[in-house]
Design a protein around this nucleic acid. Structure first.
Lengths: 197, 197
DNA sequence: TTAAAATGACTGACCGTCGGTCAATTAAAA
DNA sequence: TTTTAATTGACCGACGGTCAGTCATTTTAA
């Protein structure tokens, strides 16, 4: 045997170095050569820890998502109504605090759309399905509470996708510019119909 | 002066040649060299007619969108209720007939997300805003008819984005696999609340 | 009538960039 | 000393994009 390094930690170190480049100069300057230079390792070393360039992007997302989930848990304790909880979830798509992770999320969506493969989709499914179950649970609870009508559960799957749709449209056109407003407008109108008066 | 060619027509010819490659081998084999070969022109000539590779993709979309709009107009004449009209619109995201243009649409979204610039966004906004106005008009008409409740108009902007959200999620995860079912479920539930009984 | 000049269309060799590979090297552990 | 995990950067091939030069046709003027 020879030197044994902490592969998991080194993977994170390289990802963190990449994160810096990404948030400073965008994806276009995120070249393997640049990452290697910033991380202080050789180009070949990168491929000891990552399958390819996309793999690096996914690792960064992983790190940021985990950090963010902790924050979300805290925020969740502060709100009471189902509507507020749902709105809390949608913050991802417009809040200034999430600007960086959102930027990265855009890249991930772009990568998967351009080059779908089961590994990436599995990765993304894992990230999303947690939120998704939480989302369905919230609606369910709202119904149990007597806060929402029985048929509210029909909307959970669609409502989950709505924010994403508005976000993507806001990125791709200039028709939806105020994402927060757009999402809230829809949620308010829907809960107006669904809330038991 | 010398030979004068129909620049617009030649642009279309090259785009059409590209379309063939794209639908046969996907975006990865859509190289400039391959396009030039298929179109029977030199590589440099491509750049007489297109700014860059993305510009070619946009031209193809343009051609296909125009063809599709004609078909949509026909279909629109066949349905009567607002709900059916809205559903007709959403077909883009799942119908087998639109599989090719949908494939291309994915690429366009991917390109813009990865590399946003005002020109691309303007192009996309033009494509979308037509549908969007039509969408708002449909809801408006439904209200005028007494078919829908007054507050239905609050939903038009969000409803427009919903299908897109479900579609993107279906591409990026395996959580939403039956796009048609997902969209219809939401629309049915919503119209159940909005339709005047 | 004709040939020189002008012009737009067209070309493909070439360039720079980048993701990814691999033979060689290093250095710690046995 | 031997073994082997870890590391490296020169190198490769592919690709998008450029540009100096060629070609075919029209214009112009002798």
């Amino acid at each position: 045997m020879a030197i044994i390094v902490d592969k998991v930690q080194k993977r994170k170190d390289i990802a963190l170095a990449s994160k810096e480049i990404f948030f400073q100069n965008g994806i276009n300057d995120l070249t393997i050569a640049q990452i290697a230079k910033t991380a202080g390792v050789g180009k070949g070393t990168i491929y000891e820890y990552f399958k390819n360039k996309e793999d690096i992007v996914f690792e960064i997302v992983n790190i940021l998502i985990q950090e963010r989930n902790i924050e979300v848990e805290k925020e969740l304790a502060k709100v009471t109504t189902t509507k507020e909880k749902i709105k809390l979830f949608s913050r991802f798509f417009y809040s200034p605090e999430d600007a960086e992770i959102r930027q990265l999320y855009k890249e991930v969506i772009s990568i998967i759309l351009a080059n779908p493969n089961s590994e990436m989709i599995a990765f993304q499914s894992d990230c999303i399905s947690g939120y998704f179950q939480w989302f369905e649970l919230l609606i369910e609870e709202g119904i149990q509470n007597g806060e929402l009508r029985e048929d509210a559960k029909e909307f959970s799957r669609g409502l989950f996708a709505l924010s994403e749709g508005i976000f993507i449209k806001s990125q791709v056109t200039h028709i939806y510019d105020d994402v927060e407003l757009e999402i809230h407008r829809f949620i308010d109108a829907l809960f107006n119909l669904l809330e038991v008066k």
